[in-house]
Each structure stands twice: as structure tokens, then as C-alpha cells.
Design a binder for these strands. Structure first.
Lengths: 201, 201, 201, 201
DNA sequence: ACAACCGGGACAACCCGTTGCT
DNA sequence: AGCAACGGGTTGTCCCGGTTGT
């Protein structure tokens, strides 16, 4: 990796953390200079504008936080195990995500107003990717008879993502991780119940 | 209400929408002048600083969006009905909350970095209030034997809030309201299940 | 005149001198701050951008330098006397125009590249106004039989303006005013000759 | 010519056009990189600074545009023919000079403020050279009895240069070449009249 | 040895939230 | 009470040298 690549990567890494923490408008080039240790010229040599840097940084952040979940999913087999592995990966990632300043997808979804449509579109695409992953896993499990036939894959995706992201936000706001525990318990039961006949109660 | 009060209320109302949409750093005094139709002096006449206005605006926003839920809760009796009324109020509020630019609590929880601790504390308190409301309702239902004894009130609060807020964020990011429907279905089942013995399956 | 008007006028006056001397690109807002004695905010309160200020300043400069010529023309009667009065006014203005840093029209005509079309158009219009003035005077003198019938009004305008502006540039570049004297002598003879039959030689 | 010489010449050629068009302050190294197709290092390899390049470019530009006039003068004999040849060469050069962005002498005379005295001195010298050329031709014609004895050589130089440069500026500002035609007609008559007794009228 | 290039730091235009004079 | 002025803040560009890979 050339030195230029290294520098660029370094900038992206630090910028991603800062943007995720403070938002686009809340992060100034001066702040970025401070965390990267570079002067303005040094940064603008690699990125034509703050926007361009933000876009690269967000892509990097998404990739960083989603990496572990994909790996966990890949390592597991079967619908229930895969979904539970994904949930577990998210929960276990709490400390690291928290250190990052929260989930980049959620932060961007909330932070991005209509001023920077490209960032919003990026967030939508990334979220859709996650959504589709859950949907595919669920649908496959339904098709293979592991989950009940009347399970709605899209609803499963919504619930899992909502609970995880909502609990993460709660935990970070309150400053303790108990919401994550509640989320895990709830989702484990929820996923387990996908395998049962609906009228079992 | 005096004319000064009216003006102040007008500023707070418009500022709340703008802050909620664009975040603190993303909202400038110029923008606030534009939406309020007042000159700079007119605003600074009522608020000593941007911070002070932001604090008042956030308090107003929280009160606005939580009002309906409290009313719905008050109008209902019993744990299940109260919780379901609260969920329903949130879901039915989707269009209005969406027009506001999302839930102020969530937005502030995500947006507020450590630069403005007062706003963060406000968000924590407001969230705690909501949390406590659910906890109290749930605990009362447990004590009265409506909910099972082993239900954990804190977990119920976490799940309901997480699902609602998570689904709201999802719905707003994707631009359609289906996640809200999934959330409602899920929470209705969840709340119903609080009344049953855990091992009923 | 309100204080705001006074300040604005003061800025325009000083800016006009500076822009005329150093050109648009060669004049920085810092320089403008220095000559006006105002800070950045003070200037930007009256002009939205450097461009806007440049436009106002150029209009002011044109008006300033053309004022005397119009007055001289108005005070005279007849084609020859009017044209000679105009020439004389320009020549007598040498010291002042020189102190201004040259004729704003000529400076703008040379300085303005395609980057700022509005300024160029302004210069074109101002030059056309001058051109038309000479043309009208000449044509009237032709119609009234003072000038020969075969005099071409447009050519007269071209020659007078060219000689005056060319000589001014020469005088300023060389640092002495003899070109102005030569120009006056030449134009006086030229104008006198407009009254004679062409084949008098 | 070595490759280094070729590169240097290429830079000077393109830089001359750009400087002439946009002025010193209005031309950035980035622009120069764009028109030369070289990187910054490539340019700084041949010129120590922007100033040095500007000086070389201006000298080149002057030489380019004055070349044809010298050739025209050399090819002619006698005061009248030489001066008319010079005028004609300038007029015929209109399209090319216009493509260059105007006469470098005039542009520099107007553009150069006191910030870059060296460029100003260059322009003064180049103009003096032209001036002296006309003066010498005229004086020789006077001494040889071709022109009248009371013709003032310096005045002739002033008038010819003024009319040509003034008309060129007018033509470029207005965007049509009629001023050039008027200038030619006028100067032809003017030069012809240098041969006649002054009171011939 | 040499040319590309990355980084520096000052400066560009412009806007910020705020104060104080009128 | 409203508006002009402030001055430090914003992003982005300037011209230029020190470093580095070839």
C-alpha cells in the first residue's frame, strides 16, 4: 500500500469516527485536522471537499460495523442459528459500536437532513442491504420448513433491526447496557417462536 | 397570553421543528430568522442565546409528541389496554411525527454529542420519563395479577420503546410506513403475551 | 442620509478606488477591510458578496469619471464646441483619473475576463453610453450642416475615445502627461477638420 | 532544441496566453497546470516561481505580437510607407491578437499594479521600444524632408499607438472589429497629412 | 540524479452567533 | 427595539518546499 493510500486510509478512519460522533454539520475541517494530525492542504490533497470525505468515511464506517455480523452469519447454518448469530454479533459489538459513537446507519438516518442527499441515499442502501440479508435468511428458512409458513420475512427484518437499533440508542443514551440484554432476550424468544405454530398459545 | 408570550411561543414552535429536522449544529440563526419571520433582534429579545432557544425548543418538542401518548394512556384502564393505547397513539402519530422530522427524543439522543451536555441531559430525563411511565404501568399490572409475576417491567419498557423508535427510524429512512405496521403487530402480540404463563408454548 | 447609507457609500467609494487600481482578482476582502476601516461583518452587512460590491463599485466609478464630461458637454453648444469641451474635460481630469488608477471603463474592459460576465456587460453598457453621446452630438452637427455630410459619426466616436483612452494608458504607463497634450492637440485639429470640405488639401 | 527547452517553451507559450487573458492575480498555478498539461513539479522544474514564469511569459508575448510589425516595417521604405505598414500589420493582426486576449503591452499596462514592479518595468520598456521605433522612423522622414519640418515625432508615436491600442480595446469590448477599420482610415489620413504643409487648409 | 507528489501553512471568500450603539 | 458592527468561525485554494520512490 502506497504512502498516499495509507494517509488516505488514516484520514478516512479518523474522519469516520468523528463524523459518526458529531454528525456532518457538527464536524468541522479543523476538528478533522486535529484528529488526523494533518493540515488542511494534507487532507484536501486526498479529498476534494468535506462532502467527498464524509461519503468515503460513511462507507468505511458501515463496512466496519457490518463486517462482524456478516461473518457471524456466514459461520452459522440454518435460519434460527443465523439470525441468533447476527443478533449476538450486534450485542457483543456493543462496546465497540459504542466507542464509535453508535451505529453509523442509525446515526446517519437520523442526522442526514435533505441537505446532503447522497449521504442519505448511502444510508438507505446500507440499511436495505441489512434488511435484505435478514429477509433472505428468513425466507429461506420458511421455504425449507424451518420457520412457519405464515411468517412474514419483511416483518422479521423490521423487528430485529428495530429492536437492536432502538435498544442501542437507549443503552447509549442511558449510559448502561441493560437494554442490550433485554433486546437479546426478547429477540431470542422472538426468533425461537418463528419455528412454532402460531396458535400454540 | 400577552403578545410577548405569543411571539415567544411562535419562535419556540418553529425553532423546535427546525432543530428537530436539522440538528443543533445544522441549524443557524439565519435559518431560525427565516422560519420565524423575525429579525435577529426579535429572537435575541426573547432568548439570550442559541443554546437557550434550543433548550426551550426541545422541551416544547418533547411535550408536543408525548402529549398524545399520555392522553391515550390516561383514557385507558388496565395494563394491557394502557400499553396498547400508548403503542397505538405512537403509531397513529406517525404522519405528524414524520412531519416534525422524527421523534425529538431519538433525534436528540443521536444528534447530541458531548458539546452540549444540557441538551443531552434533557433528552435523558425525557426518555426516563417515558421509560418510567411504561415501567409503572407494567409493575402495577404485575402487582394486580394482570401480567405474569416473572415479567420484568424494565424489559417491557425497553422493548416497547426500542421497537417503536427503531421502526420509526426505519420507516422514515425508507420513506414508507410498513415498519410501523409490523411494529404494531409485534407489540400487540408481545403485550398480549405478558398475560400468559411463560411456558404456555 | 441614514447611517447605513453613509457606510455603504463609504465602502463603495473606497472599494471603487481599490478595484480600479488592482483589478477584481487582485483585490481581496482583507484589502477592502483595510481601506474601509470595517471588519468583515461590517462589509458583508451591506453587500452579499465580493461580486455585488464590485458591481456597485464599478457603477460608482463610472459615474464619477463620466460626470464631468457630461457636465462639460451640457454647458457647451454646437458640435465642435461640445466635442472639444468633452475632450478638454477628459484631459483636465487626467490628474484625478490618474489618482483613481486610470479610467474605470478601460481598466474593466482590459481586466474583465469571462469569469465575471456581469462586470463586462456593465463596462460594455457604459462604453456604449459614451459612444452614443459622441455619435449623437456628431450626427446632430452633421444634420445641421456644421459638420460635413460625409463625416461618419461612429468613426468620430471611435477616434475620440481611442485617442483619449490610448493616450491615458500611455501617459500612466510612462509616468508623464505629455501623451495627453499630444492627444488634445490631435483631437482639436481632428474635430476642427470635421467642419471643412474633405478635399481642401 | 533539447527536450527541456521544448517543455520550457511549451509552458511559456501557454502561460503567456493565460496570463494575458486573466492577468497575473487572476491566473493560478492550477490553471497553468491545466493548460500546460504538466504537474506542479513539472512547471517548478523550469521556473523558480510564478513571478519568474510571468516575466518570461510576458517577454514572449510581447515578442510574439510585435514580431509582425517589425517585419512589416523592415520590408518597407520611407517614412509614410513604414508607418502605414506598421499600422496595417497591427490591424491585420487583430484576429490573432484578439485570440491572445488583447495586446500584452496594453493589458500589462492596465493590469499591473504596484505589487509586481518588475512586470511593470518590462511593459514600460517594451512600450518605449515601440515608441522609439515610431519616433526614429518619423524623425528620419523629417530629416530627409519627407515629413514636414514642424512635425513632432513624439506626438506621432503617441497618436499612432493611442489610436491603435484604443481602437483594439474598443473593438474587443464591443465584440466587433469596426473600430479597427475606423482606426486604419484615420491613421492613413493622419500619416498622409504629415507630408503636407500644415496650413494647406 | 531527478521528477513527481504529498504536505504545509497562510490566505481566500464568506457566515457564524453575539453585542452594543442609536 | 432594531440594525450595524464585530471578530473569530466556516470551507476551500493559494503557492511553494521537503520527502520519497524511481
Amino acid at each position: 500500500m502506497s504512502k498516499a493510500e495509507q494517509t488516505r486510509q488514516h484520514i478516512v478512519h479518523e474522519a469516520a469516527r468523528l463524523f459518526n460522533r458529531c454528525g456532518y454539520a457538527g464536524t468541522s475541517m479543523q476538528d478533522l485536522m486535529a484528529v488526523t494530525g494533518l493540515k488542511k492542504g494534507g487532507i484536501y490533497n486526498h479529498f476534494a471537499s468535506k462532502d467527498e470525505l464524509a461519503i468515503a468515511a460513511f462507507a468505511y464506517a458501515v463496512q466496519q460495523v457490518s463486517q462482524r455480523q456478516w461473518q457471524a452469519v456466514k459461520a452459522a447454518r440454518g435460519g434460527e442459528l443465523r439470525l441468533r448469530a447476527m443478533v449476538l454479533a450486534f450485542i457483543n459489538n456493543f462496546d465497540e459500536i459504542s466507542a464509535w459513537g453508535g451505529c453509523p446507519l442509525m446515526n446517519m438516518a437520523i442526522d442526514s437532513d435533505d441537505t446532503h442527499p447522497q449521504l442519505r441515499v448511502q444510508a438507505q442502501l446500507a440499511m436495505q442491504t441489512w434488511y435484505d440479508l435478514i429477509t433472505r435468511i428468513t425466507q429461506k428458512a420458511i421455504d425449507q420448513g424451518e420457520f412457519q409458513a405464515n411468517v412474514e420475512a419483511a416483518a422479521v427484518a423490521t423487528i430485529i433491526i428495530s429492536v437492536l437499533e432502538g435498544a442501542l440508542a437507549l443503552a447509549r443514551l442511558q449510559g448502561n447496557s441493560t437494554p442490550m440484554t433485554h433486546a437479546q432476550t426478547h429477540l431470542d424468544e422472538y426468533i425461537a417462536r418463528l419455528k412454532l405454530p402460531p396458535d400454540s398459545s
